[in-house]
Write a protein that binds this DNA or RNA. Structure first.
Length: 437
RNA sequence: GGAGGCGUGGCCGAGUGGUUUAAGGCAACGGUUUGCUAAACCGUCGGCGUCUAAAAAACGCCACAGAGGUUCGAAUCCUCUCGCCUCCGCCA
């Protein structure tokens, strides 16, 4: 949610902001109208209640007369009818309020579609091969690493089995992430390298629930738009997590951090479930786009003034991990149109997949990092004590590894002429092998 | 799944229909005092509205897990829901 003070005092600024995201600015006027009505009724109701209270005190002190009780009863009915009115307006006001997306940060490139996203840098040489590189699925199937056909038999399309070294690699990636994010030396290095001024507080590993209630899901802003993407278990009124972010954010809902406890950083591991409702024709083969995959996800609760640097830290960690794996990638800064409701700024990492497009290769998204500023925090009421005051924290999230897609990039970039796959150096000790053959 | 118990502010904790208008304590923050620290003392310390250019102050309303209900008046009584704890059953 957007700060109501800003909405009331600087509606034009909000309008300009949400317009950049491609959202109708009239939403703000609609809200302000409802807000005025809401305030009017609130005032009326407060006055009625004050009268009732005063009267009941006079009963207690013995000053009331019998006939006045009748008047009080009447007053009570007035209160009730105002309460009903208020409830209606409040519901509408809240619904509109929640629909207003977060404002983009001033630095976010303005754009109309994903075409306007900005490539910030390309890192690492695109892999060169003396032979036509295969796509990951061909490689993986011939090596017995991925089985989508049997998965289709068991669960349907867009599922897969990870087998043998592929399964081992998943745990290897996990080890790499956990060791990296627990290591203050590495964090300090990343902070220095990127010229940041955030603390080197390690990330706390966490395995969150993957079934979430409605409050958590909507608090993170995943139901207003894009609700189609989410699996729901009707019988128990629970949702399947699409990313551990959805479980990590609400973890601290209705809580107040002490200032000294910030930043609070987590690295979550969870299975992610997505309906892929709108993507019928897209990426139908293999495991690039599936209903279920595992992901390591960074999540930070920080003081507002540090969130821009925290965002850079998350990106820095992502780049560090990719460089450790020696994978070629590029960093994209998302333009305003491509931010989504909760994000004020967002970076994606796209990794080079040389086997795609019949061996011509292409960059595909493997990571994403968003700064949602106080938008989710306000919805979930996650605050911190500044000393004198209580303020909303800023919340950020970023992929450490989406396992399936990372495996794809490893398979394609590290393939050999013989159709084997070399294991990235940093992972060899965890897998206990240098090559998959 | 069955039986019972519990749910009060950042935390602890009092309160079983009307000076509770949520006591008291801890933590935090500001100040006074002070070689420094500590202690002591004073103040601040949930949300919203009215007023205001804005803030402060003042005033009012709301908030005792949530939603309803009874009453002139509810943290307190009633109903339902949720969560947690204990015991039994089942179970990786």
């Amino acid at each position: 949610m957007i700060d109501i003070k800003l909405l009331r005092e600087e509606p034009d600024r909000i309008k300009r902001g949400i317009e950049k995201k491609g959202v109708q600015p009239e939403l703000v006027d609609e809200f302000l109208k409802l807000d005025r009505e809401w305030r009017e009724i609130t005032k009326k109701l407060d006055d009625l209640r004050a009268g009732q209270k005063k009267f009941s005190h006079s009963v207690h002190s013995g000053q009331a007369e019998a006939r006045n009780i009748e008047a009080a009863k009447k007053n009570k009915e007035d209160i009730k009818s105002e309460e009903v009115k208020l409830e209606v307006i409040e519901g509408r006001r809240m619904a509109v309020w929640r629909k207003i997306p977060n404002l983009p940060l001033p630095d976010a490139p303005i754009g109309k579609s994903e075409k306007d996203n900005k490539v910030l840098c390309e890192v690492g040489e695109k892999s060169k091969f003396s032979f036509p590189p295969k796509d990951y699925l061909t490689l993986a199937e011939s090596l017995g690493l991925i089985d989508v056909e049997r998965a289709a038999k068991v669960a349907g399309s867009r599922f897969g089995y990870l087998l043998g070294a592929a399964a081992r690699l998943e745990f290897a990636l996990g080890q790499l992430v956990l060791e990296t994010l627990a290591d203050q030396k590495i964090l300090t290095h990343i902070i220095k390298k990127n010229g940041l001024t955030v603390s080197d507080t390690p990330f706390i590993p966490v395995i969150p629930p993957v079934l979430l209630n409605e409050k958590s899901m909507s608090g993170m802003g995943y139901l207003e738009r894009g609700g189609e993407e989410v699996y729901k278990i009707e019988k128990d009124d629970l949702y399947l997590a699409g990313t551990s972010e959805q479980a990590l954010g609400p973890m601290h809902q209705n809580e107040v951090f002490e200032e000294k406890d910030l930043p609070r950083r987590y690295v979550g591991f969870s299975t992610c479930f997505r309906r892929e409702a709108g993507s019928y024709g897209k990426d139908t083969k293999g495991i690039l786009r599936v209903h279920q995959f595992d992901k390591f996800e960074m999540f930070s609760f920080v003081k507002p003034e540090t969130s821009v640097h925290e965002h850079r830290l998350l990106l820095g960690v992502q780049e560090h991990l990719m460089q450790k794996l020696e994978l070629p990638y590029r960093v994209i800064e998302m333009c305003t149109a491509d931010l989504g409701d909760p994000a004020a700024a967002k970076f994606d990492i796209e990794t080079w997949m040389p086997g795609q497009r019949d061996g011509k290769g292409e960059y595909r998204e493997t990571h994403s990092a968003s700064n949602t500023t106080d938008y989710q925090a306000r919805r979930l009421s996650v605050k911190y004590r500044t000393g004198k005051d209580i303020e909303f924290v800023h919340m950020l999230n970023g992929t450490a590894f989406a396992v399936g897609r990372t495996l794809i990039t490893i398979f394609e970039n590290f393939q050999t002429k013989e159709g084997k796959i070399k294991i990235p150096k940093v992972l060899q000790k965890y897998v206990g092998a240098k090559v998959i053959s």
